[in-house]
Nucleic acid binder design. Sequence first.
DNA 1: TATCATTGCATAGCAAGCTATTCAAGTGGT
DNA 2: ACCACTTGAATAGCTTGCTATGCAATGATA
Lengths: 146, 146
Amino acid sequence: MKDQSAGYLANHMARLFARGLTARIKPLGLTTGTFPALLELWEKDGLTQKELVVRLDIEQATMANTLARMERDGLIFRKKDVGDGRVQRVWLTDHARDLRGPAIQAARAENAAALSGLSEVEQSQFITLMQKVIAARQPKDATVTA
Amino acid sequence: MKDQSAGYLANHMARLFARGLTARIKPLGLTTGTFPALLELWEKDGLTQKELVVRLDIEQATMANTLARMERDGLIFRKKDVGDGRVQRVWLTDHARDLRGPAIQAARAENAAALSGLSEVEQSQFITLMQKVIAARQPKDATVTA
DNA sequence: TATCATTGCATAGCAAGCTATTCAAGTGGT
DNA sequence: ACCACTTGAATAGCTTGCTATGCAATGATA
């Protein structure tokens, strides 16, 4: 029944991933919710909240709360944009920068462990299929379907 | 980067599924969290909380809260087991029973929509791969690995 | 039988997701 | 210059997940 439902399986799988990653990054003082934002910020600092929202497909309110926790925990600080008083730019603290290596290491380890039941070929098939499912849902930019 | 990470993709995909299902079952007065429990209870009533916890791989505390909401919303009621005073058995209300058809219909529709970017073959591959990933994490019952 | 351990459930408190609402800052049109 | 609209962010309030703790009922044992 439920084990044939893609949605149920997706939810269950995501929970298993989250449990695993939570355990691995807890020693670093990190939680799963901050991880996507950190990935973006490690690539490039000084993004606006809006930019993070778009890149990560997270609601604005969720991101605002996540950033508030990250600020509280000394991972980031926010500074008003000089040109536009509405914009808050997000900058990493040195501490957050230091966590990049071990955090990415932990994520890789979790991914490897989670996929250890699949062959090499299956693993890349799996990634590709998830990418396809996600891509099919992304609102095609200029395709004014309405 | 993140689009190659199985964990990130799993999380993103699960959020997309949840968004879709949320919208579809809102008219029924249902939310996503109750869905797994309902699936079990539609199959067979009078389960204990413990049984639901095991079947759905959800923490006990989470299930207790979910059942509390379901009771509040008139989907279930709980009655003490006659033989064991600790056990609460969960029973569906008539209203919850009536929702079975349309709810399952909504879930099927969401699954179909979400997988519409995949071919038939890819869809069953995808299901199989998710099942494998999940199965690899299930604590093999009698395999006392410790 | 009195005590101790286990088992089933509830509660507290937090993270991470969401919608809806509010507010301040910019932008455009007249 | 003024008013209306838009845009970026914050806040309130909810669900759904988690860990940690407490508590009552049961089971086991000295």
